[in-house]
Amino acid sequence: MISQRDIRLTVNGVSYEGSAEPRMTLVDFLRHELGLVGTHVGCEHGVCGACTILMDGKAVRSCIMLAAQADGADLMTVEGLAKDAELHPIQQAFMEERGLQCGFCTPGFMMSIHELLQTTTDPSDEEIRDALGGAICRCTGYESILKSVRNAAAKLRAST
């Protein structure tokens, strides 16, 4: 029998302790052990980007990480964007610009955008494409997502 591993990590500022088999992927741990189901699974082979979260501030694909690899890390997921009823500017921008249709890929997109806008406050369209090229949206055709990023960047610039 393979022994379980203890895993301690912080998600959205809250500390969690749990245990998982070594083979458990990080996204399964977040969703099914911690109940943070806002992060979605689209392919389980690291191509679609739906499972993207922030790990120590960097956008990573949680379907191709083991939970054990994230032991001790500081994570952020879509659940960490809004503060109570107040939506994050990225979320507001997605609503205003119709950056989503079915909404399944959206949490992953928003986390990649979060990383981008932390480092690049006024991204060019090329920089936006670069940051989002590894994420697939099957509904929108990306135009409204591009607009959402521009809108979110402007909102964030205005608020600082």
Partner: peptide, 9 residues
């Protein structure tokens, strides 16, 4: 190499 999310890891 891949995309930023890949290069981060």
């Amino acid at each position: 190499v891949g995309h930023p999310q890949i290069r981060n890891r």
